[in-house]
């Protein structure tokens, strides 16, 4: 009996312990779900508020009418077109350069050389530089300073391209790295050079991943206001850009402008423009997700 005693004891105590444990376990899970819920609540509140305020003012006039001092007839046509122009410049610079850099780093750069590591580290760090600092750079070097383009579409496009370049590079590198080595070896074994292998095998196989990264980078660019404010794009622009050397405004700047105005009508307009901006972003993200699901290769 005395030998059995401890056993009986533990049998009796075990359920008690596990109750306490279950409580702490459950409490912890509740805390976690609350933290997660806070993020979701933030998202829902933001969307609800923006839509609730903005929907009455939302309509085709946003992209049909130019901004005006009267909120009742004001629109964001110049901002919509300015956004498209700047985005086109940004994409045509950041996409080829970013993919080129990623291809170099993944396929050609000698891994053991100091400069390769240096470049990779530098890109990591650039990704964390505040966007307003890019704005200062744009102000000092491109809008004024040595290049002196002024606050025009090209300047805005260049600044945003430099801003999102690290994102494009990092995403493209990951997509290229995900292409299995066996594909490269198969290609080399047929007498393809490294460049032929990259161009005809690796890049096509990495396109879905690269495209996803590019779209995410461009959606970052589309929402940026601070660096463009710095180069002097925060002005009244009641016309569409006509070329790379046109003055311009973009949706985020238009929203910022409207937020700062006292009239209730402009507050609503700002929310309506937020809806438009969110809709554009949502469409871009939907394309990214579709691309990822449609073309993702399982190896």
């Amino acid at each position: 009996m005395s030998l059995l005693a401890p056993d009986v004891d533990s049998v009796v105590r075990l359920p008690q312990q596990s109750v306490r444990r279950r409580v702490s376990d459950r409490a912890f899970l509740i805390v976690l779900v609350i933290s997660f819920g806070l993020a979701l609540a933030g998202l829902v509140a933001l969307l609800w508020y923006v839509f609730d305020t903005g929907l009455p003012a939302f309509g085709p006039r946003l992209w049909r009418r130019f901004p005006s001092l009267n909120p009742a007839i004001s629109g964001a046509r110049s901002a919509v077109f300015g956004t498209l122009w700047v985005l086109a410049v940004t994409a045509s610079l950041a996409v080829p350069i970013g993919i080129g850099a990623a291809v170099y780093l993944e396929e050609f750069a000698p891994a053991d050389k100091w400069y390769t590591r240096w470049i990779a580290l530098n890109i990591q760090n650039l990704a964390g530089v505040p966007s307003i600092v890019y704005g200062i750079f744009g102000l000092a070097f491109i809008a004024r300073g040595p290049i002196d383009l002024g606050p025009v579409v090209l300047t805005g496009g260049i600044i945003l391209a430099l801003l999102v370049l690290p994102i494009v590079i990092i995403a493209s590198r990951e997509a290229i790295r995900a292409v299995p080595e066996s594909i490269r070896h198969g290609s080399f074994a047929l007498g393809a050079t490294r460049l032929q292998t990259v161009r005809r095998q690796v890049l096509p196989a990495a396109v879905p991943g690269i495209a996803t990264g590019v779209i995410l980078a461009l959606s970052r660019a589309i929402g940026e206001a601070a660096p463009l404010i710095m180069i002097g794009a925060f002005t009244y622009v009641p016309f569409n850009p006509t070329g790379l050397d046109s003055k311009f405004t973009v949706l985020p700047i238009q929203i910022f402008d409207w937020i700062g105005r006292p009239q209730e009508g402009f507050t609503q307009l700002a929310a309506a423009a937020c809806i438009l901006l969110l809709a554009i972003l949502l469409a871009m993200n939907a394309i990214a997700i579709w691309l990822r699901n449609r073309y993702q290769q399982r190896w």
Binding site: S182, I183, G186, A189, Q201, P204, A205, Q297
Partner: peptide, 13 residues
Amino acid sequence: RIGMVFQKPNPFP
């Protein structure tokens, strides 16, 4: 001139 076939089939996608 000297072709190779690998252990695991590796057709291109």
